[in-house]
Structure formats: C-alpha cells, structure tokens
Design a protein around this nucleic acid. Structure first.
Length: 479
DNA sequence: TTTTGAGTTGTTCGA
DNA sequence: GTCGAACAACTCAAA
C-alpha cells in the first residue's frame, strides 16, 4: 500500500538544516513535496520590497538545489496560499501539510485561517518553530506581561534554556510521482527590471553556501573584536548575517550554537554578539504582543506627534543628498548594496525623524523597500527606537550630531569616501564638515558646495532645536 | 506594599 | 583639553 504525501510549505525558513517542518515530514514515511508559494498580497501591506525580492529569488534557487540533492524537487506556485495548498493536496493525494511559523500580524491571521481550513478538509496541519530561539508566547515578565525594556528581557532569556538546532532524520525520502507542475523561478518576476541591483552580487552571495561561509568567516575572526569594531562602518566588523536570518537561510538557533561552539563566548567575546541576536528576538516579542506597531507608535504619547511631512526633504534623504556626508554615505550604501551599517542606520534615522521631522513610518517604508535584510520586527523596533516612540526608546534628548558621529566612527573618512565619491579628495579633517572647509581646500578637492555636493539641508543647531521644540509641543498636546 | 535603581547605541554646557 | 551633570518618563525587578 502506498503512503500519502506530506507537503512542506517553505516560507521564511529557506534552508534544509535546522528545519523542523522538513525534519518532521521526513519522518512521515510517505513521499515529501516541498513547496514555496509567492503570495505578496497576503502580507498585509508588507509585501517584500525590491531588494528583498532580489534576495528571495536567489534564496529560492539555492534552496531548490539543496532539496534536489535530497531527491526532493521544490515546487513553486504563485497566488492564494490556501488555494495553492489545496490544489497540491488534491494533485498528490497528500494527507498532511507542515510549515514553520511566521510572526507578522497579517501572516498569523492568514496561517490560523489556513490551518483551520486544512483541518476542516481532513488534512493534518502542523506548524513548528524555525525562526526564533524563544517564541513570544513563552516569554513574559514576573507580572505575566510582555517585556517592554530590553535589559530585563535579555536577563530573563538567560535563565531559559536556548532551543537547539534540529537535525534531519537519516531517512530517505521520495518525491511524489507524478510530480506536480512547478512554475519557473523567473516567472515569479522577483528580479528588478531596471539595473538597480547591479552592485548586489559584488557584496552578497545569497545562497545557503554563502550563509554558512559568512557565519564561519565572522566566527573565525571579527567576532572577537565585535564590541569595538562593530561601530566603524568603514571596517567589516559586523556579522553581515542579517539577510540570511531574514530569509531563514540561517536560523537563530544555528547562529547561537555556532557562536558557542566557536569558543567565542568562553574567550569573553561573542557575548555582545549574542545580545544582538537577542535584540532580534525582542523585536519579534514586541511585534507579536503589540501587533499595531508596524503602523503606529507603541507609545500613546506619540500618536499625534507634530511631524512635518515634506516630500522634498524625504526625497533628499532617500537619495543621499542631505549635505551631511555620513548620512549621504549611508543612504547610498543602502541603495547600492541593499544594506547599511547599523551605526549609520541610527544616524540616518535620527536625522530624518529629528532634524527633518519626517514621520518614522516613511523611513521604515524606504528601508523596507531597499534592504535585503528587511524584517518587519527588526525594522519596526529600530525605527520606533530611533523616533523615541517605541519600547525601550532612545531618550528624547538623544539627537545624534551627524558631524560628531562621523568623526567618532569614521575618523579617517574612508566610509564617506567610498560612498560619496565627490568628497573623496577632501582631507579627513574636513570630510564630515565640508561647509566649514576653507575655500582653497574645497577648490583643491574639486568640491563646489551647492553644485557638486549639497549644502546641509538644515543646520545642525537649528534642526536640533526644532526637534526639541516639536518634542516639547508634543508633550503639551499629549500630556 | 512601597521604594529604589538602572536602563544599547548621545550631546551640550560649564567648570 | 577633560569631566560631570543635566537633559523625561516609564518599565521592571530587587530590596
């Protein structure tokens, strides 16, 4: 007698190792059908942005190869997830669908409905955990409430055993016969039509092999100097694992275990990095417990903040034409590589929401569209933190001084030179403040302010004061 | 029960 | 030049 097929529905867990849904399916005895369904309309206004889709294309290609090696071709579908799953159930006579959970509010709602619908059809529907070390509903403070401050959250996590990676069973699986039709990857049209992504392949290897190499390259060296060098954008001091984590080519459990196995924690280093993994967990904790936060401030006091939306200011920021070199370098790094160094993300965010008084949601949306590591939980947490309106927010008076940040963290100006070539010939002394450079220095460097490079979009002192005034005004309004 | 201290990522000002 | 204080309001846990 033939066994029924089990469908593995891949989503943001585009890997073979440490994949509970795949592992469970391989224990199921019957044929296994891996499927990915591209359903951007179901993402609740957070369909993958352009950079994320570019990565997704390559991640799917890589996953397809890895599954092929197991003898399980990946089937691609497009459109309604429930319809596609039902079609595949019918085509393969499947009796089970397994997947790994996602935590975005719209996806939780969709998946809950799909699970019920499949059960009503008489199909076993099961979801596992591939995306987090500690799931949001397992974690609460002593009052039984969700945490709103990182440090107690992190202290609490350290009292809990971390989930460990799942290993695949040593069983051979077969694909269903006949195999259902698959769309061609290209037909999903995930790659940009204009030539915007030209610089991405130079920076990234968006494959499973690339994920593994990036993890080990980080653990073989940079992790030991992470605490100091992670703030210097000109250096490769950070892990650069975020896009692999965002697409599930690496799971946080794997990263956690690898950091420990590398001995970095025992050497005293590594701990700071693990706390960054915990920040990712904190982002998901907040997203699940406060599901309105991708759209609205967590803090009630910021719901009617006197933002001053200004299309021209927003556009200057997006294009990297604010006249603040460190900010413009960051925005251009983002555009050209789909990624921005974390220190610089804070600086550009501070300028947008404080000096320019633009709604943080506009910045979050631009990051969403342009980051290869776009992740709703981390993006929301980061922007609400910068705007001061979220959990464990930056204090209102923390208004970054873009010149000081540049001088502190890019002292030689190498980061600015790399991404703002029109300033490349300025000496380090003036590279973060070109408007204060003597005329002769500017002339020699070939810089004409207002022509080859803009004047600051707003003076630092004036922008800072306007932000403080808006914050005072907000306090009067709300409270 | 109430109080107290501390909290990712900073800047400015005045001594 | 360096250094400490001040810049809210609220969360959380320990005392």
């Amino acid at each position: 007698m033939t066994q029924s097929t089990c469908i593995v529905w891949f989503r943001r867990d585009l890997r073979v190792d440490d994949n509970p849904a795949l592992a469970k399916a391989l224990c199921h005895c019957g044929p296994v059908l891996p499927v990915y369904i591209f359903a951007p309309d179901e993402e609740g206004d957070w369909a993958p942005g352009g950079a994320s889709r570019w990565w997704l294309h390559h991640a799917l290609s890589s996953l397809g190869e890895a599954l092929e090696a197991l003898g399980l071709p990946l089937v691609l579908r497009h459109g309604s997830s429930l319809d596609a799953l039902r079609e595949l159930v019918a085509e393969t006579d499947a009796d089970a669908v397994f997947w790994n959970r996602r935590y975005e509010p719209a996806i939780i709602e969709r998946d809950t409905a799909i699970k019920q619908a499949l059960k009503d059809d008489g199909i076993e529907a099961w979801s596992g955990n591939a995306g987090l070390i500690w799931e949001p509903h397992e974690v609460s403070n002593q009052s039984g409430k969700p945490f709103r401050v990182f440090t107690p959250f992190w202290k609490h996590l350290r009292t809990l055993p971390p989930a460990t990676p799942v290993t695949l069973p040593d069983t051979k699986a077969t694909a269903p016969d006949p195999l259902p039709d698959s769309l061609a990857l290209d037909s999903l049209e995930l790659l940009p039509t204009l030539d915007w992504d030209a610089g991405f392949p130079k920076r990234w290897t968006p494959t499973l092999e690339g994920a593994s190499k990036a993890l080990h390259a980080f653990l073989d060296g940079p992790v030991d100097h992470y605490e100091k060098k992670r703030d210097c954008p000109a250096e490769a001091g950070t892990s650069r694992l975020s896009p692999y984590l965002a697409h599930g080519q690496l799971g946080p459990r794997q990263v956690w275990a690898a950091v420990h196995a590398s001995g970095a924690v025992d050497r005293g280093a590594g701990y700071k990095y693990l706390s960054e993994i915990a920040w990712r967990e904190f982002g998901y904790h907040l997203l699940v417990h406060f599901p309105h936060t991708p759209f609205e401030a967590l803090s009630d006091a910021y719901r009617r903040f006197p933002w001053e939306p200004d299309k021209a200011a927003l556009e200057a920021w997006r294009r990297g034409c604010t006249g603040y070199p460190i900010v413009d370098a960051g925005m251009r790094e983002l555009w050209h590589t789909g990624w921005m160094h974390n220190r610089v993300r804070m600086v550009v965010a501070s300028l947008l929401v404080k000096h320019l008084l633009q709604p943080w949601q506009d910045g979050a949306r631009w990051f969403w569209d342009t980051l290869v590591d776009a992740d709703l939980a981390s993006n929301t947490l980061g922007w609400q933190w910068s705007a001061g309106c979220g959990a464990d927010a930056a204090p209102y008076f923390r208004i970054f001084n873009p010149m000081l940040q540049g001088e502190k963290f890019d002292p030689d100006g190498d980061y600015v030179r790399r991404w703002v070539p029109e300033l490349a010939k300025l000496p380090a002394e003036h590279i973060h403040t070109p408007w204060e450079a003597p005329a002769e220095v500017l002339r020699k460097a070939g810089v004409t302010l207002g022509e080859s490079y803009p004047e600051p979009i707003i003076g630092h002192k004036a922008g800072r004061q306007r932000a403080l005034d808006a914050l005072a005004e907000n306090k009067t309004r709300n409270g």
